[in-house]
Design a protein around this nucleic acid. Structure first.
Lengths: 364, 364
DNA sequence: AAAATTTAGCAACAGCGTTGCGTAATAGGG
DNA sequence: CCCTATTACGCAACGCTGTTGCTAAATTTT
């Protein structure tokens, strides 16, 4: 694994990304804000701001008079300056969103997909949806790319779908490559849960520490945000949180093991025992905390959000019970702020992140 | 959380670290090796090599004649140029090692600690041990610092021991600060399992992907290496792998929950059922793989290494059984190569890593 | 009106990797 | 033996980064 060389272009991208992160988090900001947040010298911040202004990514919006002294220029992100499309490919539906540079979902649309759809059918649906979403406005010229979030297994580094669960026509499909040709736009492919946690991280900004997105929607997955970036693992297969064993002698799961979180949860759900279902998830979440020590846990997914308060209460209680003996061990548990759009929006943000986020030094 | 500013000094440190990593991994190397491994231009590599040579960290060791053309100069790391002390603080013993720049353990010593020892007693034992280990040679002047690995909970960022299990005198002790004063050397404090995985990562070099160190020694812990660095979590509490629930209706654990990996494993061990004990650990490891998707799993710890083959076989089989349906999902399972010295050595390597490893951009 | 204070930017600078090109050292062919 | 092709290596100039030193501008306070 050869690391990527660090040159001065990296410096530029890195420090620009820091400023952009400030702009996304704070509605308005000024030079001194950035100085404090980044540790750069005022002069360096001036240069970065000048570059970003020239690119149209930020703009000044008046001045602030703090009392004595020359007024400070106030800046803000220009949300309309860049867009990205996010696509959430599920078994029977395609959800498309248009996200602006500030991370706001500007449009959202759901269309049905044919049963057992082929790559070709998906591409056509993507193209149609993107064209209708971007055709009328001048959005098209400011489009940075398309992010696709779907269930695994897949290969993020090579943009390869290895074989989506229950879809016959999806074995080793180089989706990123063929989609880039078909759409004429850069395409980013990732697991659904990884896209989802990226959305949460983007909205929270630089203060977002290690976190997990627990998603319950047909299956159970867990997207991870560790050390300032999404964690995908050695083969883009991280996040199969639902297939961790919590009951050694439990019922057999489709994955072949016994007592997976997912199958135990499903049995509880099918028995109508919602409290138990929520408690099982809570046990799994605390397991994650013990292993990874997270600052945030975000709950998401259609099946979970049908009973949001039940799950939130169960998980919060379990986390607090476990952390009670140590007041310094705080973990915030919240519900996903984006609802059903979370994954599509996160996929779009990953595209924006490639351009305006912290540049990667390790190879992807 | 303010990120650290990236300036040209970062570039220097980063690219130098890449070259040093090559030097640690490959016994001998030449300019073209580094060019290929790092992606730097040959001229840039020449400059880096010149700097490192001037500091005495590397030296040329002859030439290689590959046939036609001017011979290439061969370089090697100078192991003796820098040292670090590593300390593994356990409940009743203090293990000290002297590690050189190449990551080799040059000396190792174990001394008993008084029952329920105080911070003062530990400091005295540290000082005595370090003095005897470095006194006679000219090692002292080349000592970069002291790394301390011990059981949690502790605060890595502030160098604080929050309260070691079963030790009464260790509540909120600023160990790093007082040890730096007492020893006159930089001190690095970290959890035992995190130090252990650092040792493995150092010895494997840049090709070491996401990995975990499973340690069974009185308790069960799991050190994590994710995305090129040790993963400590939001409060330096990651790695409490033994306290993940694998049996919902299992026996009550000291941590208050039921069916933790650790208590289930202990019951099996005490019943003399070693195969079951190993299988339980294997289930836990596969749980980790599902969640994190690791490239390596390293088995370590005194209790595990009493029956190394049993555990290795059980874990390997479980991992392969789970990955059978997907040949691209490979995880290497190995035994720790450093044995009992793993944690102390890893703690020492963390100190060397602060000076000669990849510089951190995110604040610690 | 003058002084104090705060913000902003121009200009010179140090340091990084890159590029262009010249030089050194070797093997092989005439 | 000499010449050429080949490979390794480094000097010098360059473009770019953030930093430093200092000046200018805009405002409140005295």
């Amino acid at each position: 694994m050869t690391r990527i060389t660090a040159d001065v272009r990296f410096l530029r991208g890195y420090n620009q990304a820091l400023v952009m992160a400030v702009g996304r988090t704070a509605r308005r900001f000024e030079r001194s804000t950035v100085v404090q947040a980044t540790g750069l010298t005022p002069q360096a911040v001036s240069k970065v701001i000048a570059r970003l202004s020239a690119d149209g990514l930020i703009r000044s919006t008046g001045v602030r008079r703090p009392g004595v002294g020359k007024p400070a220029v106030v800046y803000e992100l220009v949300p309309d300056s860049r867009y990205a499309i996010g696509a959430h490919v599920a078994r029977r539906t395609l959800r498309l969103v248009l996200v602006d540079l500030a991370g706001t979902v500007r449009h959202s649309a759901v269309s049905p997909l044919p049963g057992d759809f082929t790559p070709r059918q998906l591409l056509d649906a993507l193209r149609l949806g993107i064209d209708t979403m971007t055709g009328s406005t001048d959005v098209r010229g400011r489009l940075t790319g398309v992010g696709i979030g779907m269930i695994g297994p897949l290969d993020h580094a090579h943009g390869l779908v290895r074989g989506a669960h229950g879809l016959r026509h999806w074995h080793d499909v180089p989706l990123r490559e063929i989609a880039e040709k078909h759409l004429g736009l850069p395409v980013h492919l990732d697991k659904d849960v990884t896209a989802g946690i990226t959305a949460e991280a983007w909205r929270h900004g630089a203060t977002f520490g290690d976190a997990a997105l627990i998603m319950i929607e047909s299956g159970i997955g867990g997207g991870l945000w560790l050390g300032g970036t999404a964690h995908r693992g050695a083969h883009t297969n991280a996040g199969e949180f639902g297939h961790t064993v919590v009951d050694l002698d439990g019922p057999r799961c489709v994955c072949g093991r016994h007592g997976c979180l997912e199958i135990v949860h499903r049995h509880a759900t099918e028995a109508g025992d919602l409290p138990r279902a929520a408690r099982v998830v809570a046990v799994g979440v605390v397991n994650l905390l013990q292993t990874l020590d997270l600052a945030h846990v975000v709950l998401a997914g259609a099946d979970l959000l049908r009973h949001p308060e039940t799950y939130l209460a169960a998980v919060t209680e379990a986390v607090q019970a476990d952390a009670r003996r140590a007041d310094w061990l705080r973990t915030r548990v919240t519900l996903s702020s984006l609802g059903a759009d979370a994954i599509a929006a996160g996929a779009a943000m990953q595209v924006l992140d490639q351009h305006y986020g912290i540049p990667e030094l390790a190879p992807t």
